[in-house]
């Protein structure tokens, strides 16, 4: 059984069809990439997978459960977590607190217990803190734990979002252009982090424009163009696919 199965997924914004009848499957322990030119509908697919947008039609099945149209926090609870293309870190918190927010869904104490400062709430909090620190270590940011998240450079914002998303203990991690704004060295580190994540038993689905990164780390690639899936397969085959080359480079010009 695939971990995630997307069936005939469609999304229309008014008259515009952003995602048109897309199917794909993600299997446990895969690293899978979704690529495509700007406006191909990649982020819209992510938004539907995480409940931010409701599909117009089609089905999203995660571990045998139909999650299409469910609320974002419910989907996170089921085991899908994500990062954002335009990073959405909590600038009003420290780095480690950002990651601790990710523990929210796996912790329980409600408003009353927190107000009174019950022992159970404090114990849970220090566990969240330990977990957050170890995740910051995983992405190589443990030295910045107490810095304000607002002071981080772009590259580290992406890494912080990854740590935060991992704190929710996802089975499937969605990365939306994690290499945007990174230099080559940082992208190399990112690839290592993604391997480590997969090594830890988390399946990874990413949207990315950095082709060398995608071709390097992905087991399989899905190519979208104008909302439709035009190809799917291992990186080597995708690179030679005529339709894909055409989507990226345009129609080959016939010389007389």
């Amino acid at each position: 059984m695939p971990l995630l199965e997307v069936k005939n997924l469609c999304k229309q914004f008014g008259g515009l069809t952003a995602v048109d009848n897309v199917d794909f499957r993600v299997y446990t322990d895969q690293i899978k990439a979704i690529i495509g030119p700007n406006g191909a509908g990649k982020t819209t697919v992510f938004n539907m997978l995480t409940g931010v947008d409701k599909p117009t039609s089609g089905k999203i099945v995660f571990e045998g459960i139909d999650i299409s149209g469910k609320k974002p926090h419910v989907i996170t609870g089921l085991g899908i977590s994500r990062t954002f293309q335009n990073t959405q870190i909590f600038k009003n918190m420290s780095v480690v607190e950002n990651v601790m927010v990710g523990r929210h869904i796996r912790t329980k104490n409600g408003m009353l217990k927190c107000m009174i400062g019950l022992r159970s709430a404090r114990i849970e909090d220090s566990e969240s803190m330990d977990k957050a620190c170890s995740l910051l270590k995983l992405v190589g940011m443990e030295k910045k734990a107490n810095k304000s998240a607002d002071d981080l450079p772009v590259g580290e914002r992406h890494l912080l979002e990854i740590a935060r998303a991992l704190a929710t203990e996802p089975k499937l991690l969605l990365l939306d252009e994690p290499a945007a704004g990174l230099n080559n060295e940082e992208t190399g580190k990112l690839a290592e982090v993604i391997y480590k994540i997969r090594g830890g038993g988390v399946t990874v689905l990413l949207v990315e424009h950095d082709m060398s990164l995608v071709m390097d780390i992905s087991d399989e690639v899905v190519v979208l163009n104008f909302g439709e899936k035009i190809a799917e397969g291992p990186p080597l085959l995708i690179q030679q696919d005529g339709q894909v080359i055409q989507a990226y480079l345009g129609q080959a010009v016939e010389h007389a």
Binding site: F90, N92, M93
Partner: peptide, 22 residues
């Protein structure tokens, strides 16, 4: 506390807060 961080997360980015399970 956990709830206080959730509140600040709502302030910081509502979409990210929801995606973190809040």
């Amino acid at each position: 506390s956990r709830v206080g961080r959730a509140l600040r997360a709502v302030h910081g980015s509502e979409i990210a807060a929801a995606s973190m399970g809040i």
